[in-house]
Structure formats: structure tokens, C-alpha cells
């Protein structure tokens, strides 16, 4: 497995975490919990964006594995 595909897998996990946090933020009844989940979700969102940038660079470095 190449580095790029590994990082892509982590990106997928991160997206799943983001979705899970979002769902909890919506279904939680307690306001503090809602806010905590929401803030965590936003952090995850930023991390996803940064990681996407990194993957772009990795694909540039390993063009033969592009898109995998």
C-alpha cells in the first residue's frame, strides 16, 4: 500500500468521525453536549480540509498512484 492510499484511508476514517460527531450534535438533548460535539465536528472539518491538501501534494509526488 502506498503512502497516498494510506493517508486516503485515514481521510475516510476522519470523514466517518465527522459524520458521527455531526449526528450526535443533532440528536443530543443536552446543550453542553450539543456544543461540544459541534465544536469537535468543526475541528474535524478543518482537519479534513488540511489533509486533503496534503493528499493533493502526495499525488503530485507519486503520480503513478493518482486516484487510488
Amino acid at each position: 500500500m502506498t503512502v497516498a492510499s494510506q493517508v486516503k484511508q485515514t481521510l475516510a476514517s476522519l470523514k466517518a468521525i465527522h459524520a458521527g460527531l455531526q449526528q450526535l450534535a443533532l440528536t443530543s438533548q443536552d446543550e453542553t453536549a450539543q456544543r461540544t460535539f459541534h465544536e469537535a465536528m468543526l475541528t474535524a472539518e478543518r482537519m479534513i480540509a488540511e489533509l486533503k491538501g496534503r493528499i493533493g501534494r502526495l499525488e503530485f509526488e507519486e503520480p503513478q498512484y493518482h486516484g487510488k
Binding site: T10, S13, I17
Partner: peptide, 15 residues
């Protein structure tokens, strides 16, 4: 979800 978060954290450390 908690397990996934721990895994991603470990991934980042590995990278």
C-alpha cells in the same frame, strides 16, 4: 466513534 478517533490519532503519529 471513540475507537475510530483513537485509530486516526495513531495513524497521524505513524505518518
Amino acid at each position: 466513534l471513540l475507537a475510530a478517533m483513537k485509530k486516526v490519532q495513531a495513524d497521524f503519529e505513524l505518518y
